[in-house]
Design a protein around this nucleic acid. Structure first.
Length: 135
DNA sequence: GCCAACGTTGGC
DNA sequence: GCCAACGTTGGC
């Protein structure tokens, strides 16, 4: 099982929205690199839910509920989506500033490639995040 | 196939 | 609101 980190602007779709919905289709990914990440997602993989712009913090967890499939709303087989279901909110959000303060997390894609919306979190990075309170 | 121009994302 | 970092587009 691996861990993904998905970014969302809370004003568009927040973690609270996900908890309200229980489950949602994760769509809108067009970037080639991010699509490769989506394609690698397996049911049961852990998802870290990050609020970009307004928040800049990891706010909760989720799980991959359905592996990648073409967006039914689009006529483009390359535009993949996955389904995720809500997990638990963190007791305290873990901010980007806190993450940047950990030397071992400097090469996390979230830090290095701010525009990437969807990334795989390595085992080692996952452990460091756990140390910051991402349970 | 190169590259300039333009658009977008997201941190600050 | 600004701008850096990228990705994409289109003319050549």
């Amino acid at each position: 099982m691996k861990t993904l980190l998905l970014k969302s602007e809370p004003s568009v779709y927040s973690f609270d929205d996900l908890r309200r919905d229980g489950r949602t289709v994760w769509d809108g990914v067009a970037n080639a690199q991010a699509l490769i990440v989506l394609a690698s997602a397996k049911v049961g993989d852990e998802v870290l839910f990050y609020h970009s712009n307004d928040g800049k913090c990891i706010v909760g967890t989720a799980k991959v509920a359905k592996r990648a499939y073409p967006d039914p709303k689009l006529d483009n087989p390359k535009r993949l989506v996955i389904d995720i279901r809500a997990g638990k909110p963190l007791t305290r959000p873990v901010t980007l500033a806190e993450i940047k303060a950990v030397p071992g997390l400097a090469d996390l894609a979230l830090v290095r490639q701010s525009r990437l919306s969807c990334m795989v979190v390595s085992e080692g990075h996952r452990e460091l995040l756990r140390g910051l309170g991402v349970k």
